[in-house]
Simulated assay, not measured.
Amino acid sequence: MNPLKKSIISAVLLAAAFAGPANARLAYEIHSTGAAGSFVVVSGSFEYGDDLSPLRELVAREHPTVVVFNSPGGNVIKAMELGRLIRSLGLSTLQVRQSECASACSLAFMGGVSRVAEPGSIGVHKSSFNDTDALHVADAVSAVQQLTAEVIGYMSEMGVDPGLLQLSLSYDSSDIRYLSGSEMAKYRLTTASQAPVPSAKAEPRDVARVAPPGIQAKADPSLEVPLARDGLVRHPKGRAPIKLSAEADAKAIGDVLNGVVVNILEIRGDWYKVSVADVVGFMHYSWVHVSQFEEDAGDRRYVQVRSFNSLSDARDFVKGAPVPLRVHLAANGWFAVTLRDVYAEQEAKEVSKALKDHGLIAKDSMVTIGNTYVRSVCCD
């Protein structure tokens, strides 16, 4: 048996032997694999009030690289929050059949930068939506629809095929459907055939910006999104608001001028938690030019005409286009297709309008600064 897998199984069985009630809140335990490094076992049920900060502190202190679950599920929102935290910390996830990862736990598992699971180790089913029981019918339907949309968005963000949700909805909340290895691969729930091996020399990565895995094989270094640690504010209006929370309608607690350096502390979906001077708040990731990204057009503009989640699809589109195009790896792991050249702002608007008027590019093509572009990957 693989030494890492043997160590994980032993840790899971030991945790189960001393576990509290089945509905116990989340707990985080560090386990060592000797020279290979360490991993974290997350056990218990997800509850809305669970505090995830102990995991961040544990990772900062012990530097594990892998997370394993022993959880029957629980609150969907909290599971997605944990998944995003796992992604922002640059951790991988691994699941064995000897432990449980069912229902909402599968969403937390999706947060791994790389994801490996044994066949039959992850179970899915329809969410029970218990929180809607006291609502009127119309409000309950609206709440279910909103949560379903959030789950679909989260799956896409993590690089998982949202079709997995459709499969989950086929099984009642009182039932569990354990996924086969081929199903995990089909829905991009897993990203590799070999278990991620913890490294004893792993560096803390609590400011990682990692592209959702599964969209492309990462054997090609040009398809890797580097860690986002810091950057310069670059906004079309010359200054960007810093928000109280990671939401578009959140209160602005200040403005930051273009060119000001911000440190990136955490990633929450499409938002960076940043610090600038003595202020800590949130900026949309399109407002910050990340220093670790290679793409930089300065004050000039790109004209983006399409985006794809597959590089091969983007290449095919470029080959058949009537105008010269280029493909960029984006910070979210997708591929943005732009006109090959960059332009001054007014020129970009004029070129875009002319090409739209002649039907050469899509009507919804947009002029953009390109802060979210990591590097050009095709097709000069």
Rank of each mutant, 00 (worst) to 15 (best):
S291G: 14
R205W: 02
R301L: 08
V327T: 12
N70L: 02
V374I: 12
A211N: 04
S71P: 10
F129V: 04
P54R: 08
V303C: 11
A140H: 03
V233F: 02
M366Y: 02
R25P: 09
D255C: 01
D313I: 00
F308I: 03
V262H: 04
D161N: 15
A330D: 14
H289V: 01
V40A: 10
F129G: 10
A331F: 02
N130K: 03
V256L: 12
Y28W: 13
V197W: 00
A297L: 02
I253F: 11
Y28H: 13
A195W: 10
L89V: 05
E47N: 07
I215V: 02
C105S: 11
S174H: 12
P162C: 06
A330N: 15
Y373R: 10
I267L: 15
A277E: 14
A36K: 11
I267C: 14
A277V: 05
G163H: 11
S222E: 13
V40T: 11
V68P: 04
Q346Y: 05
R268C: 06
C101G: 07
Y187S: 09
H289E: 14
G112N: 04
G320N: 12
S291L: 05
N2E: 15
G120S: 07
L107W: 11
V260M: 07
P226M: 06
A185R: 12
I176Q: 10
K237C: 02
R97C: 13
L14D: 13
Q145M: 11
I122E: 06
P72F: 03
D255W: 13
N371S: 08
S99Y: 06
Q304V: 07
G333I: 04
G231M: 04
E350R: 11
S10Q: 12
P221E: 13
P236K: 03
L94G: 08
V274G: 13
G163W: 03
L26M: 14
S99A: 15
V225R: 04
S173M: 01
N263I: 00
A11E: 07
D50E: 12
P72V: 03
G90A: 06
N75S: 14
V367E: 11
A330Q: 08
E347R: 14
L167N: 09
S142C: 01
G159H: 03
R306V: 09
E81Y: 00
P54H: 10
S312I: 05
V207H: 13
A217M: 05
L52Y: 07
N258M: 04
H358K: 15
R268W: 10
V323R: 07
H358C: 00
K243L: 14
S38I: 01
N258G: 09
L257P: 00
G153M: 02
V141D: 15
V262A: 09
I369K: 07
E266W: 00
R188N: 14
N75I: 00
F335P: 01
E294F: 01
M184H: 05
S286V: 07
K5V: 14
K5A: 13
D341L: 02
E118V: 06
P72T: 03
